[in-house]
Design a protein around this nucleic acid. Structure first.
Length: 296
DNA sequence: GTGAACGTGCTA
DNA sequence: TAGCACGTTCAC
């Protein structure tokens, strides 16, 4: 028997006014369509802060066979995904143009190829083509976890020292394209729960990622956290009272994800670990979940 | 075009 | 630090 539980607690204005029901579906249809790559249960079930990054890069058979929700296709973040950058900067296209110009060789033998590039660009192009598509063939059409390792030993680490020297893209673009600086190395945020795909899934359009939107981007509600599942506004909180001028959603419906600032500890934890998922929020959710309050 | 709501700067 | 106000983004 799973009955609606007032997640706001006894002190919730909701309880005073209306029985707050937690719908299993978000209020807005758009949230229902959300492509959020990981469900709430994913975070809850993530066992420890010491997430095996390699496991994320190379999903275990169990992970690969993990039943996916039909409406939420989940693909492992892959290099091809990153080449199809949501930032609007089509890296693959740009790289190809540069390679044609002999400026860029994205292969493990980068330096050698670069020196040869001026003489014969064909090998470089072939290598690049393999880097883009060929490797993906072995991993079921493009989502190649192996590519990360391949790239980490060759491509990315090779061009990384040249970033400041000749790499044609401003390093500032890397965060936009799904990279971030960590430990002195550019790495892909795709190893986190939400990398590039997370950005895409959260509705970051190319323009909103800085491609022309002025840099201000708008995150979406996860649609899965408890506040998101609330259907009713409390009508008593400051947000509700000041809705006309405040333009803010009810405090009790404010998405837990959106409460965390981008780049803040909670946000970043998805990349470096899931430490904050062990916070009271998660514990509370886990408890509610164990109670069956969030079934569905 | 409109409404909902996120992001951010300002203020107490 | 929280609340407020407003600009802006985004879905419909």
């Amino acid at each position: 028997m799973s009955t609606a539980v007032d997640i706001a607690g006894p002190s919730s204005p909701d309880q005073a006014h209306s029985s707050a029901k937690i719908p299993n579906e978000p209020l807005r249809p758009s949230l229902k369509r959300s492509n959020h790559p990981y469900s709430l249960s994913h975070y809850i079930s993530t066992p420890s802060p010491a997430v095996d990054v390699k496991g994320l890069i190379q999903p275990s058979p169990a992970q690969e066979q993990r039943p996916t929700q039909p409406s939420k296709p989940r693909r492992a973040p892959s290099w091809p995904d990153m080449w199809e950058s949501p930032s609007g900067l089509h890296l693959a296209h740009a790289a190809e143009l540069l390679m044609r110009a002999g400026l860029l060789a994205l292969t493990p033998a980068t330096t050698e190829q670069a020196s040869l590039g001026a003489q014969s660009s064909q090998p470089a192009k072939k290598e690049a083509a393999e880097a883009k598509g060929g490797k993906g063939d072995g991993e079921g059409g493009g989502s190649g976890p192996e590519e990360d390792e391949e790239d980490s030993s060759g491509c990315s680490t090779d061009f990384q020292p040249f970033l400041g020297a000749w790499f044609p893209f401003s390093p500032a673009l890397f965060p936009l394209a799904g990279f971030q600086m960590g430990g002195g190395h550019w790495r892909s945020t795709a190893v986190g729960a939400e990398g590039i795909e997370g950005l895409v899934a959260e509705g970051y359009s190319p323009s909103s990622l800085g491609g022309g939107g002025g840099g201000r981007r708008k995150r979406k509600r996860c649609g899965e956290c408890v506040p998101c599942r609330r259907q009713t506004n409390c009508e008593q909180c400051s947000s509700c009272r000041n809705r006309k001028r405040g333009h803010q959603i009810c405090k009790y419906r404010k998405c837990e994800e959106l409460k965390r600032k981008p780049g803040g500890p909670g946000f970043d934890s998805r990349v470096s670990g899931f430490d904050l998922r062990g916070s009271d929020f998660t514990l509370g959710l886990a408890q509610e979940r164990s109670n069956g309050a969030l079934d569905g």
